[in-house]
Design a protein around this nucleic acid. Structure first.
Length: 409
RNA sequence: CGGGGUGUAGCGUAGCUGGCUAGCGCGUCUGGUUUGGGACCAGAAGGUCGCAGGUUCGAAUCCUGUCACCCCGACCA
């Protein structure tokens, strides 16, 4: 992509209506644009990152048997009346409205009410189970207070997977698989997530949250500095300074964290209201056991910025960076264009700064945008390419072959 | 929904206490000189001062209402 053609510009100053690091940097770098509180447009750079996060999630969901579907965002009241959630907590978090002919709808903030009747249409026998369905879609939650950029929107991206099982043992086994998959996802996104015991909220008693330690976290957690023990303050049985009850060696520490994912065992909570049953081998009818598993890709994106940045801007992990390389021409457009074409031909995702602006502005923008590798071509590079990682101060001069080898490694 | 704060050009802001032709920086446009860390010179365009009422000879400035946005809290992924 030629930067001269890229839609979006960088800004020297932070927008006055953003304070959080993720919102300030993403807006300054031209990744997102705020439409209203908690509602953002993803510009080309931002959408590339969001798509990469979503694709990582997609790959790991597919790897544990997930099949992707797409459910509607617009839900008729009747489905929600079945579970009682049209009024509680639906009247709190759900955007609800009437058509001119008084038909009532709500915008989906979770999808048990749609996926359960869907599965009921296709599952009658134990032979039809288990099933794992997921989607990646925008959710709507009428938050009393949207804030902190991508960390809490009222419209936000969410991946929600729902699993359907014969019995609790099968649910439990899959729950553990999903938990492991989640750890892989966050690691691939460059986040250290803590598997945190949590209350079930409006879902169930048995759940885990995936928390990332960050200043802009909204949760307080207690975690062990030696093992993987972690509890949400809401359910904590320990306090800061305690010896870890799991490993008996480490010390429990208090920290602010952001919840980037959560998993629940719903069991029969939603299958029963919808009479989602199957006939078992012995001929008896039984309730389908359900689990649900959520990740907020947009919140993941915001969290990555919160964790990976410096004074100059963002520092994207390779896996989610909008481009792999940022090629900068300093008055050497012809040779830079040749290199650009070579990189494209080699399958490298490259942003080519071919703008007629000063060297200083190009460097500053490159730091702000945060693409992992910076490639400079100028008089000084004498036919070679200067390559530097965003998170390093060391640069070296290489030829195209060596640069390609580095980018492909 | 409680408490606090802010709305002035595309962006960031000064002016408001003490009413009278709205200023600056960035960005944009034109011409020229530049090119290794947000360049320089010369010129130019761009504003119903969030919106609606009111007071006044006269309102960005004072009064009332309203909307939006930010922060803290409550709530939540």
């Amino acid at each position: 992509m030629r930067q001269s053609q890229l839609f979006g510009k960088t800004f020297k100053e932070a927008p006055k209506d953003e304070v959080s690091v993720n919102a300030v940097l993403l807006a300054r770098a031209g990744f997102i644009d705020k439409v209203s509180a908690g509602i953002y447009t993803y510009l080309p750079l931002g959408l590339r990152v969001l798509n990469k996060v979503q694709n990582i999630i997609r790959e790991e969901m597919n790897a544990i048997g997930g099949q992707e579907i797409r459910m509607p965002a617009l839900h008729p009241k009747e489905l929600w009346a079945t579970t009682g959630r049209w009024t509680d907590p639906g009247d709190e978090v759900m955007f609800q409205f009437k058509t001119k002919s008084d038909k009532e709808y709500g915008l989906g903030w979770t999808h048990e009410e749609v996926v359960t009747p869907l599965v009921k249409k296709f599952v009658q026998s134990y032979k039809d189970l288990p099933i794992y369905l997921y989607q990646i879609q925008d959710k709507f939650r009428n938050e009393p207070r949207a804030k902190s950029g991508l960390m809490r929107g009222i419209e936000f991206s969410m991946k929600d997977l729902y699993s359907f099982h014969r019995d609790e043992q099968d649910l439990e086994a899959y729950y553990q698989k999903a938990l492991a998959a989640y750890q892989v996802i966050f690691k691939r996104c460059g986040l250290d997530s803590l598997v945190t015991e949590a209350s079930g909220g409006s879902f169930s008693k048995y759940s885990h949250e995936f928390q990332v330690l960050t200043e802009y976290g909204e949760d307080t957690i207690y975690y062990c500095d030696a093992c993987d023990f972690s509890q949400n303050k809401e359910v904590a049985e320990v306090k800061s300074g305690d010896t870890c009850p799991r490993c008996n060696r480490g010390t429990v520490t208090e920290g602010k964290a952001i919840e980037v994912g959560n998993i629940f065992q719903l069991k029969n909570k939603y299958s029963d209201p919808f009479k989602l049953e199957y006939t078992d081998e012995d001929g008896t009818k039984k309730s389908v056991m359900m689990g649900c598993y959520g990740i907020g890709p947009s919140r993941v994106m915001g969290s990555i910025v919160e964790v990976h940045h410096d004074d100059g801007g963002m520092i994207w992990p390779d896996s989610v960076a909008p481009f792999q390389a940022h090629l900068i021409s300093l008055g050497e457009d012809d040779s830079a264009t040749t290199v650009y074409k070579e990189l494209i031909a080699a399958g490298v995702e490259v942003l080519f700064d071919d703008r007629g602006v000063s060297a200083g502005q190009k460097f500053a923008d490159a730091d702000l945008i945060g693409i992992p590798y910076r490639l400079v071509i100028s008089k000084k590079t004498k036919g070679k390419i200067e390559i530097k990682k965003r998170n390093s101060t060391d640069a070296s001069l290489e030829d195209t072959t060596a640069v390609l080898a580095l980018l492909k490694s």
